[in-house]
Design a protein around this nucleic acid. Sequence first.
DNA 1: CGAGATGTTCGGCT
DNA 2: AAGCCGAACATCTC
Length: 268
Amino acid sequence: MPELAEVEYIRRQWDAGVGARVTRVALHAGKRVVRDVDPAECERLLVGSTLLGSEARAKQMIFRFGRGQQVAAWVGIHLGMTGELRIEPASFSPGKHGHFVLFQRERTLVFTDPRMFGRVRLAAGPEVPEWWAKLPPEVLSDEFTLERVTAFLSRRKKSAVKALLLDQTMFPGVGNWMADEILWRARIDPRTLGGQLKPAQVKTLWEETREVCRGALATVAIDFSDPPEDWFFHVRWADGGECPRCGLTIQTATIGGRTTRWCPRCQR
DNA sequence: CGAGATGTTCGGCT
DNA sequence: AAGCCGAACATCTC
């Protein structure tokens, strides 16, 4: 499910537990989602510590825990395809998909993930863990420059631009629907190879990548509401949709291993 | 019942 | 070596 803006929205679901101590943890040891977490270490680090705060970055989240304001442990969560965070009553008992659960006196913080493509990580100590510190520059940061994108595309000459937009090292946070939205706004055919894009198209792609991230964060991330009505988003979920710009029936194909929809007239 | 799903990662080929 | 592609992961929903 989640891309950039959805991840930010989902992260905030656990804000209800900020400032409160963890009384107990439960995880489905042996399941894929928690393969990086040692249950004993998890208990030692988290039980008795306070959830201090959290951040989202691209498709990832990190939660800080400690005593007082001193950070002593970090929990990283990637939601994969079907991960969700929820708050449940203190009396909650985790079901089949409740893979990582933090109990507090007045509520329970639950991470569910039926398909288990997500991932939980744990780190000890006051230092930001390396896997978080080393995430690539965010699309909306100053470091996400046109030059970076240009260099990337010229290195990946033989890949369809749709596949390239899904590369998290260059476009962190962009997922399948955002990639289609970006290409629709940039009027670029998703099958175009990286090496075939003209400099003007690369510039537009770079700009629209930022615009789509900005727009999604202004809507979806705030209250999980849909993006503006004129976005391609609204027509891209099924065959037979019409281009919001020209009205032509949109086209569907698998590109870069993912279902892709675009307007065959507007995007060339 | 089969197909496909807003994601990553691995292994093999060029 | 770097880049490219397809399969695999595990479960649910349409």
